[in-house]
């Protein structure tokens, strides 16, 4: 048996297909991204790439559109944390005693997650449509015609709606995670807490929340890294507009590279996105750990 599990030929034979797939389409490109980011390059075949060192990063530093996108993504992440995790948690707490019909509600809350994000973005585009869209029709019907807006073009509301639609898609995800965590808690603990007089809100904040803290931690990281990867909602609903107010780093990178042929600058943004994604995962893990110790 020992020999069976040490057969080098078989080990290689079975690992190689996965390795090739992984290396060719994921690892090599991510290394190339770093490499491309120090070249100036129009993306046209035959036109040689020119080494420019840090120039792409310097020009990015001086590019207001980049800072706008960074500011937008910070707002996007923070507001998403404030929306998705608390609502997800409250819904999970309400569903956790498994009231009659809870399965229906759980299914309904989770269902946006299985939908194509392209379709979701288009559905919301139509709901928020200025003339005859559902939202404006609704406002008009209840006599609030003065509140109607061109939601995705208006500079005060475009980013908010991008965040709301993202929350609409993802909140059910956190409900499902928290629901599993809460219903997985041992009954004795909750009963003991009830005997000690911890009921209602107190039970939730003092007993339930600390006990599912691992899930909260994971969820925070998932929201942060998930938002960094959000592309379609912005790309389809606002194209980064109005005036770059909803542009996020990944859409900016897409437009810089594939619309304006600034491949070097696009690659520099891709490197920043990569580092942010890894860095934020590590930072979130650290921060959440500390809070747990302080508790």
């Amino acid at each position: 048996m020992e020999k069976y599990y040490r057969n080098p030929k078989f080990i290689l034979l079975f690992l190689v297909p996965a390795f090739v797939l992984y290396a060719a389409f994921e690892l090599i490109p991510i290394v190339q991204t770093f490499w491309f980011s120090v070249y100036s390059w129009s993306g046209i075949h035959g036109v040689p790439m020119k080494f420019v060192g840090w120039n792409n990063y310097v020009s990015l530093w001086n590019f207001p559109g980049f800072w706008q996108s960074m500011q937008n993504i910070v707002y996007y992440v923070l507001l998403s944390l404030v929306i998705q995790i608390p609502i997800g948690f409250v819904l999970a707490v309400l569903l956790s005693p498994q009231p009659r019909g809870y399965r229906f509600f759980k299914t309904a809350f989770f269902s946006p997650l299985v939908l194509s994000i392209t379709a979701v973005s288009l559905m919301w585009y139509f709901i928020l449509f200025p003339n005859g869209g559902v939202l404006n029709n609704l406002l008009t019907a209840v006599g609030l015609e003065s509140w109607t807006k061109n939601w995705l073009i208006d500079k005060d509301t475009a980013m908010t709606w991008v965040i709301v639609v993202t929350g609409w898609v993802s909140t059910g995800y956190y409900t499902t995670i928290f629901f599993a965590a809460i219903t997985g808690l041992p009954d004795e603990i909750l009963e003991a807490a009830a005997l000690d007089g911890a009921t209602g809100l107190k039970k939730i904040t003092r007993i339930v929340l600390p006990m599912i803290w691992e899930s909260v931690k994971t969820s925070v990281i998932l929201v942060v890294t998930g938002i960094l990867k959000t592309f379609e909602i912005v790309f389809i609903m606002t194209q980064g507009g109005p005036n770059g107010l909803t542009q996020v780093p990944v859409t900016l990178m897409y437009y810089e590279a594939f619309k304006y042929d600034h491949y070097g600058r696009g690659s520099a943004i891709a490197v920043v996105v990569f580092l942010m994604s890894i860095g934020l995962t590590i930072i979130s893990l650290r921060l959440m750990n500390r809070e747990k110790i302080e508790y």
């Binding site: 389409f25 994921e26 960094l228 990867k229 891709a270 994604s277």
Partner: peptide, 29 residues
Amino acid sequence: FRFPFSNTVFVFFVMGMMIPVHSTIIPLA
């Protein structure tokens, strides 16, 4: 299976979950 650095190889494969897709699309294209 048992082979040298088997745990490192596992981490190597799973690490891919941390790579944002968008950071690879320019070289991929």
